[in-house]
Write a protein that binds this DNA or RNA. Structure first.
Length: 815
RNA sequence: GCCGGGGUGGCGGAAUGGCAGACGCAGGCGACUUAAAAUCGCCCGUGGCAACACGUGCGGGUUCGAAUCCCGCCCCCGGCACCA
């Protein structure tokens, strides 16, 4: 062959790898291991997007490099195949989601194979396969048995017209985004996972993980730990007690009112008769606002209940309000309001004419004028009785201890993290393996009246897993909030020992399958356990995990949570699943806009591969810029990368076994090995490619190119352009696969230049350059510099006042 | 508003205290060709004939020397957003 033809060589080597089982994961060796993982894709109907191969190419380079440096590599791929689009498609066309999913997977797999990724396809997994679902359900049972999965009435956005629950994003101004139908906040029975029980561990173990700092911070903020105190306020004329959570117990003397969330159960009790009408109206209004609408307006609305609370530190009576700026879901759903030192309380007090009392001052003396805004910083206590003069931190400790002694409070830690609503009223998800007793007089399938005892949840026997989805006639959501599966009556109801039972009809959310897939890749065919302990020991944790920053919180937090539960269960040996995490940046369209069908700027990998070849596509995506950066696509730049590969091929045709590299070429070769090796290890692929381009351009100048030099170039290039790597390796007379070759090494001594060009500055400005032997002395440098006419001119024959000499770097003369 | 990341030629980017612009795209000139494409070679921050001056978002500072470090701003992207 005399020309580089990717269309010929790429399928050829892909077939070779398949036949040869080149990328089968080694088993039972004592070599070091590397588990290199991509976030597996949802196989959508539109096929692979150019964004997918960016991360996949990066991990492929790391995997091929790791093999070349003597590691056993686990590098698998699979499908996160449950999800809404296949179900929507089923509603429109009647095609079973299983069929749509299978087709989409076939497309994705063809496209990934076309790009030459070195996955061990023998370990392919599909989250919708019964074998996989079995273990997802098994983990759910572990959660249930540990008390970490429970049922709760959760206020959800229920749209009766659409017959479904809507996400907060789907509700605009109280009506559905699609269709404008009215949406109510109704409490619905949901399965909830107690992730809050792991909040502290999820926070603490972030310390030991090699993740982007931004992602760790996002998770920290999401967990949102805050330390403070719970304080109990008695209510005048009632036996009731209002509990509040505050991070600033030092401001207790400045509490001039209390606020309860509208949902707070004490609202009804505390409201006086003359206030009841107003309160009821406000509560009603708050109930019908979605969470989002409620937060959209920052106005501090609220209503006085007529009740008064007694401040435990000074006995002062303060009015109790309700207001929707206090959230029922956080803390105790009630606050002590300190307008002088909290912006929100300040706004509310100003709007409602409530007194503002300063109790913290920066100087230790009360302010001269009334406060014009809340002073939220720490300082020295004023107007606080015996605590006056204390620093904020000391005051907090003292008053918390005093409250505790008086039985009026205690130290408390709160989290923003909420428990995880885990059920969906959808079809295409894992059935939750739970059933309930049914009270009925007849056959509920035949229309007999029945009552399901949701309070008596029973776990499906492990031996009965997987619990499979029933086939349905249609997948349209119905009027029953129990979900689509409620219509599959023969599936839902069954009899055992004469007693009727009903299966849970909610399914799991899409997150479920992706919470533990990295474990199944370790032991994908095990029928007895989700992953054998020996193999888990061998492969965990994942050494490198690459995927989009959009999963910085949810997926990565949920997966960590499940992993910790499995750790407690003794099923995995590590506390954390993913040691090192990297987010690839987004690839934008040619115009710098986000790629989307509606903009018509979507680039299809099939087109790129057929025009330029898979290797060009891979190298282009790595050459665009730093992996983590967002960067725009530019098809004409791929032509440049293709020219580089053409030159590698052309230069290989000139291989000459008799030719010997001169000193300069030897030096460049060793420098290139060093640069490419270090850049791969730091995942700086763009500069690694640049170095290989420089070497290739240099080889282009030679008539006979030393074969040994080309061997090294092929070995450096093959993780990036695996097909061309194999082809060139064969052209150089070697037996495939280049995959089996060890990574080239460099000699640091041979990287060193023996002569160095050093810039000469006068007062910090470069005026000339001198070529000096490596490690020349200051005296040599100065002598050489003074010879030069531009330097002599600038110095005007006077010796420099001062000389700065950084060996091999710079000579700076100060006049 | 708060948190995180970023701003360098016409474009993607390189350089993390020592020659700003590696490598590539686009563009220009030349060779080859009947011609074009492809390929190969050279040029390519701005101003200036040149010497030289200016130049890494803006303004200041530290330093012999700053894209790089410090202070104060502006703009763009991502996340969070009444969490008491």
């Amino acid at each position: 062959m005399t020309r580089y033809e990717p269309a010929t060589i790429e399928p050829k080597w892909q077939a070779f790898w398949d036949r040869d089982d080149t990328f089968r994961t080694p088993e039972g060796t004592d070599r070091p291991k590397r588990y290199i993982l991509d976030m597996f894709p949802y196989p959508s109907g539109s096929g692979l997007h150019v964004g997918h191969p960016e991360g996949y190419t990066a991990t492929d380079i790391m995997a091929r490099y790791a093999r070349a440096t003597g590691c056993d590599v686990l590098h698998p791929m699979g499908w996160d195949a449950f999800g809404l689009p296949a179900e929507q498609h089923a509603i429109l066309t009647g095609t079973h989601p299983r069929d749509t999913t299978a087709q989409n997977i076939a497309t994705f797999k063809r496209q990934l194979k076309m790009l030459g990724f070195s996955y061990d396809w023998a370990r392919e997994i599909d989250t919708t396969s019964p074998e996989y679902v079995k273990w997802t359900q098994w983990i759910f049972l572990k959660l249930f048995n540990r008390g970490l999965a429970y049922q709760s009435e959760v206020a959800v956005n229920w749209c009766a017209h659409l017959g479904t629950v809507l996400a907060n994003e789907e509700v605009i101004n109280g009506v559905s985004e699609r269709g404008g139908h009215s949406v109510e906040r109704v409490p619905l029975r949901q399965w909830v996972l107690k992730i809050t029980e792991y909040a502290d561990r999820l926070l603490a173990d972030l310390e030991g993980v090699e993740w982007p700092n931004s992602t760790r911070i996002m998770q920290q903020e999401w967990i949102g730990r805050s330390e403070g105190a719970e304080v109990r306020f008695d209510v005048a004329g009632h036996d009731e007690v209002i509990e509040v959570f505050t991070t600033r117990p030092d401001t207790l003397f400045g509490a001039t009112f209390m606020v309860l969330a509208p949902e707070h159960p004490l609202v009804d009790v505390l409201t006086t008769d003359e206030r009841r009408g107003e309160i009821t109206a406000y509560v009603e209004q708050a109930k019908n606002k979605s969470e989002r609408d409620r937060q959209a307006s920052k106005d501090k609305t609220g209503v006085f209940t007529g009740g008064l609370a007694i401040n435990p530190v000074n006995g002062a009576e303060v009015p109790i309000y309700i207001a929707d700026y206090v959230l029922w879901g956080y803390g105790t759903g009630a606050i002590m309001a300190v307008p002088a030192h909290d912006e929100r309380d300040f706004e509310f007090a100003t709007a409602h004419g409530i007194p503002i009392i300063e109790v913290v001052s920066k100087t230790g003396a009360p302010a001269e004028a009334p406060l014009s805004e809340a002073m939220v910083e720490q300082g020295v206590a004023v107007n606080s009785g015996k605590y006056d003069g204390l620093q904020t931190a000391d005051f907090k400790k003292r008053v918390t201890a005093d409250l505790e002694l008086a039985g009026q409070g205690l130290a408390r830690v709160e989290y923003k993290l909420r428990d995880w609503v885990f059920s969906r009223q959808r079809y295409w998800g894992e059935p939750i393996p739970i059933y309930f007793p049914v009270e009925t007089e007849g056959d509920p399938r035949a229309g007999a009246d029945f009552t399901i005892r949701y309070d008596q949840a029973i776990a499906v026997e492990e031996s009965e897993l997987p619990l499979r989805l029933p086939d349905l006639e249609d997948y349209e959501p119905g009027t029953d909030p129990a979900g689509v599966l409620a219509r599959a009556q023969d599936w839902r109801f069954f009899q055992k020992d004469g007693q009727w039972f009903a299966r849970e009809t909610n399914t799991m959310p899409q997150w479920a399958g992706s919470c533990w897939y990295y474990l199944r890749f370790i032991d994908p065919d095990n029928a007895d356990t989700l992953c054998s302990p020996d193999l888990a020991d061998q492969w965990l944790p994942v050494d490198l995990y690459v995927g989009g920053a959009e999963h910085a919180v949810l997926h990565l937090l949920y997966a960590r949570f499940w992993h910790k539960v499995l750790y407690d269960e003794g099923a995995v040996p590590t506390k954390e699943p993913f040691k090192k995490l990297v987010h690839q940046g987004m690839i934008l369209g040619e115009g710098g806009q986000k790629m989307s069908k509606s903009r018509g700027n979507v680039v299809n990998p099939d087109d790129i591969v057929s025009e330029f070849g898979a290797d060009s596509m891979r190298i282009y995506e790595m050459f665009m810029g730093p992996l983590e950066a967002t960067k725009p696509w530019n098809t004409s730049s791929i032509a440049g990368v293709r020219r580089f590969l053409d030159r590698v091929f052309a230069v290989t045709l000139r291989a000459d076994a008799a030719a010997k590299p001169d000193d300069a070429l030897t030096r460049l070769l060793h420098q290139t090995i060093r640069k490419v090796t270090k850049d791969i290890e730091a995942m700086r692929f763009n500069t690694a490619i640049s170095a290989m381009m420089v070497l290739t351009n240099e080889l282009m100048k030679l008539d006979g190119v030393p074969t040994d030099t080309l061997d090294v170039l092929a070995k450096l290039l093959h993780p990036f352009a695996p097909h061309l790597g194999e082809e060139v390796w064969a052209m150089l007379g070697h037996t495939p696969s280049i995959q089996a070759e060890p990574w080239p090494t460099y000699d640091p001594a041979l990287c060193e230049e023996d002569e160095i060009e050093v810039p000469v500055q006068i007062n910090g400005k470069v005026r000339a350059r001198i070529t000096l032997p490596k490690d020349a002395t200051e005296a040599q440098a100065l002598a050489a510099a003074q010879e030069l006419p531009p330097i002599a001119t600038h110095l005007k024959d006077k010796p420099p006042r001062k000389t700065i000499w950084v060996p091999n770097k710079i000579l700076n003369l100060i006049t």
